[in-house]
Measured scan of single mutants.
Amino acid sequence: EVTIKANLIFANGSTQTAEFKGTFEKATSEAYAYADTLKKDNGEYTVDVADKGYTLNAKFAG
């Protein structure tokens, strides 16, 4: 089991951190699915991958 950390950075400057656990593939998929649920209210996002894929920095356009 691994933990994927998602740093969510919103256009207004606020941030949120979420963690997803499971296999690498499952946890990564859940992190992206969570970011997708936030698109409606926060706009499209881009992701910078860090820490060999164990940290995802998602920046929302607003």
Rank of each mutant, 00 (worst) to 15 (best):
E1H: 12
E1C: 15
V2F: 06
V2K: 05
V2M: 05
V2T: 06
V2P: 02
V2D: 03
V2G: 03
V2H: 07
V2W: 05
T3Y: 06
T3A: 05
T3K: 07
I4W: 00
I4V: 10
K5M: 10
K5T: 15
K5L: 11
K5I: 14
K5V: 14
K5P: 01
K5W: 10
A6F: 15
A6P: 00
A6E: 03
A6Y: 05
N7T: 10
N7Q: 08
N7A: 05
N7D: 01
N7M: 10
N7F: 14
L8T: 02
L8K: 01
I9D: 03
I9E: 07
F10G: 00
F10C: 06
A11N: 08
A11P: 13
A11Y: 08
A11Q: 09
A11R: 09
N12S: 08
N12C: 11
G13S: 05
G13M: 05
G13L: 05
S14Q: 14
S14N: 12
S14H: 13
S14I: 13
S14R: 13
T15E: 07
T15F: 12
T15Q: 10
Q16H: 13
Q16L: 14
T17K: 09
T17C: 13
E19F: 15
E19H: 13
E19A: 09
E19K: 09
F20H: 00
F20E: 01
F20D: 00
K21F: 12
K21D: 03
K21Q: 09
K21G: 05
K21V: 12
K21T: 13
K21P: 03
K21M: 09
G22F: 04
G22P: 00
G22H: 02
G22E: 01
T23M: 06
T23Y: 06
T23L: 08
F24R: 07
F24V: 06
F24P: 05
F24T: 03
F24K: 08
E25D: 11
E25M: 10
E25N: 09
E25W: 09
E25A: 12
E25L: 10
K26I: 11
K26H: 11
K26T: 12
K26M: 12
K26V: 12
A27N: 01
A27D: 01
A27Y: 02
A27L: 01
T28F: 09
T28D: 02
T28S: 08
T28G: 01
S29I: 12
S29G: 10
S29F: 13
S29C: 15
S29A: 15
S29T: 10
S29N: 12
S29W: 12
E30G: 05
E30V: 05
E30Y: 08
E30I: 06
E30K: 09
E30H: 07
E30W: 07
A31L: 08
A31T: 02
A31K: 00
A31R: 01
A31S: 03
A31P: 01
Y32E: 02
Y32P: 00
Y32I: 11
A33M: 09
A33Y: 07
A33G: 06
A33E: 09
A33R: 11
A33I: 07
Y34V: 02
Y34C: 06
Y34A: 03
Y34S: 01
A35E: 01
D36I: 04
T37V: 09
T37P: 00
T37R: 12
T37F: 12
L38N: 05
L38P: 00
L38G: 04
K39S: 10
K39H: 04
K40F: 11
K40D: 10
K40R: 12
K40M: 11
K40C: 12
D41M: 13
D41Y: 13
D41G: 09
D41F: 12
N42V: 05
N42C: 15
N42H: 15
G43D: 02
G43C: 05
G43V: 03
G43S: 02
G43Y: 02
E44A: 10
E44N: 11
E44Y: 09
E44S: 11
E44V: 09
E44M: 09
Y45C: 04
Y45Q: 01
Y45W: 05
T46Y: 10
V47F: 07
V47S: 05
V47W: 09
D48I: 14
D48L: 12
V49S: 08
V49H: 07
V49Y: 09
V49Q: 06
A50D: 10
A50T: 13
A50L: 14
A50C: 13
A50N: 08
A50F: 11
D51C: 07
D51E: 08
D51R: 00
K52L: 12
K52I: 05
K52S: 14
K52Q: 14
G53A: 03
G53R: 01
G53I: 03
G53N: 04
G53V: 02
G53D: 04
G53F: 03
Y54R: 08
Y54P: 00
Y54D: 02
Y54G: 04
T55K: 04
L56F: 10
L56E: 01
N57G: 03
N57A: 04
N57Y: 13
N57R: 05
A58L: 15
A58D: 02
A58Q: 05
K59N: 09
F60A: 01
F60Q: 03
F60T: 01
F60Y: 12
A61W: 14
A61Y: 13
A61C: 12
G62N: 08
G62H: 07
G62A: 08
G62L: 07
G62Q: 08
